[in-house]
């Protein structure tokens, strides 16, 4: 964990970039995440956010994801979310309506494969 309370790890698996977040995605940590997400979209817009180990996400963190999902799609990719066994983060996404605009997976490999099967 870095001093700000958010750890960000990036890896590429089968041409999909996995961004794994641990800690809190809040007003204090969101700027760093935004920079990495923006750069990643420029490099490879097929992105899975692994949020299984996120402590919580606040409205600013949600806003970063909403703000860039269209950019990823305009560049031929997408932002998809891998999330399981994390009831508070799942609840936040559910009540804010995220499943209406973003695809969620409870299995990372299914998320990776989805980029091959649906043409994005």
């Amino acid at each position: 964990m870095d001093k700000k309370g958010l750890n960000i790890h990036k890896e590429v698996v089968e041409e999909v970039t996995i961004i794994k977040l641990s800690g809190s995605l809040n007003a204090y940590t969101a700027p760093e995440f935004e920079t990495i997400l923006r750069d990643t979209i420029d490099e490879n817009p097929k992105i899975i956010l692994d949020l299984c180990n996120l402590d919580y996400i606040s409205s600013i963190g949600l806003g970063v994801i909403i703000g860039y999902v269209e950019d990823a799609r305009e560049k031929g990719g997408d932002i998809r979310i891998f999330l399981k066994n994390n009831s508070i983060v799942e609840e936040i996404f559910e009540i804010t309506g995220f499943p209406k605009i973003i695809k969620f997976f409870d299995d990372k490999n299914s998320g990776i494969q989805s980029f091959k099967t649906d043409g994005s």
């Binding site: 409205s59 600013i60 806003g63 970063v64 909403i66 703000g67 860039y68 999902v69 269209e70 950019d71 804010t96 309506g97 995220f98 209406k100 605009i101």
Partner: peptide
């Protein structure tokens, strides 16, 4: 949320 996404708004 659909409108926020369309407008690339980061809050709300």
């Amino acid at each position: 949320i659909e409108q926020l996404k369309k407008e690339k708004k980061k809050g709300g």
